[in-house]
Amino acid sequence: MSDPRVRPVGPYPISQGGWHEGGSSKAYVTNDWRLEKPVVDLEKCVGCLYCWVYCPEPAIDLLDRAGKGPSKVRIDYDHCKGCGICQQVCPPKAIKMVPEEEEVANNGSI
């Protein structure tokens, strides 16, 4: 038996007072939360940003992050939880929800 006074090695370092650099949650993947996944039809997408502005994650990546005009999007499949809001709010109906198992042409998985 090992010395009971020795502290076990935890899964990560312990900071002073429990602070952390912001944005670290990105390493945490939530893709197994969903039953359906959104697929963007880039032909129909007009770049209006509505899906981005209503996404709770955000799991909508803007193809033109630096610009000031319309930007087409792609889904961050590592983090999308499959809620389907983007499909609901998309004005040109360029997003459809398909079963998670379905093989889809990759429209920009990151």
């Binding site: 502290r7 935890g10 899964p11 990560y12 312990i14 002073q16 007072g17 429990g18 602070w19 952390h20 650099e21 912001g22 944005g23």
Partner: peptide, 21 residues
């Protein structure tokens, strides 16, 4: 300048170690 987060929630995997420190 770099955004930091304070007062995070700690689960059983870390809480005791914060308290021990």
């Amino acid at each position: 300048e770099a955004p930091k987060s304070f007062g995070l929630m700690s689960l059983p995997d870390s809480y005791q170690f914060f308290k021990e420190d």
